[in-house]
Design a binder for these strands. Structure first.
Lengths: 191, 191
DNA sequence: TTTATCATGTAAGTCGTTACATGATTGA
DNA sequence: TCAATCATGTAACGACTTACATGATAAA
């Protein structure tokens, strides 16, 4: 599973706690990975048991204590191995509810399907907009060192920009596709 | 979960057995849904227990017996309800190992990353090629009525074509993106 | 004779979501 | 006072994968 590598990769830098990782996933790298807090905590615990991470409790004055994680040497090695081994297959599991709904569209009222495409286009425009600009983590989390650092890394790292650019291009392709479908449905008989 | 609706949708037509459904997923609608045989069998069983499907055993002379499934009236209603209710969100779970590998690319040797992009482009070209033509199920499964019928439906159904077209456009966008990334890596310092 | 295809299933384990529990502080 | 944010976790369930078991026929 790749969540473990996402965590090992993120924890190579300064120590982070589970809650902040969730914020990073949601705010900064939402084109890359997604996970629920409960899953993150469980995975961090599991990685620590395996000796790939270690944690320390950091008490805070005005906030609850944090459990800060860092990679161990073994964790760093495991990540390195994963990062330098090109996978045999690039296939991603194909399980997309929207595709399925469209696939079975011919049994559904055409006006309803048109509305579904319109809503999909709105959704995709939102995604594109979100990907077009850098997520300004430093602004959103003022005074947070971890976020400031993540922000800076993303701004300087060409690979981080690749991922952002991909989100833009792919969502644009899907917008064009959906608009094309809508036009065909409107041009077709009985509309 | 949507696998159940994929099954209910497929089984609205002529009765099909689990093994044939797997073939349909793999050959015809691989842009739409994916599932392992073991999961299909379990899900079919579960849907029958819920009264949404019913099955009959069909003995064959030269082959093992088949368990043929069909939707019940309750199953048809459940499918209708799903198909005619536009979901609140179009978000798909974002969990793509390739994105993650690129995101962490700056720590990896540049030549290795270039090779990874090249392999990715090859993979995407294969996907595009597969999507450009109709999957000729009738040719691949000569004499198979279920496949012949699925083939014909796909050929006549505009929604089926939408899905195919989407796969073409999205894989094209990803090819362009990856080529753009490669060019940037090659133009950058130290290449 | 061995491999491939057809055919159905079970069992174990991993991965992921949803719901629940707890409790502190801050701001409206 | 009430909601929001910060913070960590547990428990139950649901979804998916991998491995295993079985056995027939057809083709190489």
């Amino acid at each position: 599973m790749s969540l473990s590598y996402a965590l090992l990769g993120l924890l190579r830098g300064s120590p982070i706690n589970g809650y902040a990782i969730k914020a990073l996933f949601d705010e900064a790298i939402n084109f890359v990975w997604q996970a629920e807090l409960s899953q993150i905590y469980r995975e961090l615990e599991s990685l620590e048991k395996k000796g790939l991470l270690c944690s320390t409790i950091e008490p805070q004055r005005d906030r609850p204590s944090k459990r800060l994680y860092q990679v161990t040497e073994a964790g760093r090695l495991a990540f390195e191995k994963w990062a330098t081994t090109i996978p045999d297959s690039f296939a991603t599991p194909k399980r997309d509810e929207f595709s399925l709904r469209i696939f079975f569209g011919s049994g559904t009222d055409k006006e309803l399907m048109k509305e579904e495409f319109r809503r999909y286009i709105e959704h995709m425009r939102g995604l594109r907009k979100g990907a077009e600009k850098y997520t300004n983590l430093a602004e959103r989390f003022p005074g947070d060192q971890v976020m400031a650092r993540a922000d800076q890394i993303c701004r300087e790292d060409p690979y981080c920009d690749f991922i952002r650019r991909r989100a833009v291009l792919v969502s644009e392709a899907q917008i064009l596709w959906a608009e094309e479908c809508l036009a065909k449905l409107e041009a077709g008989p009985g509309s």
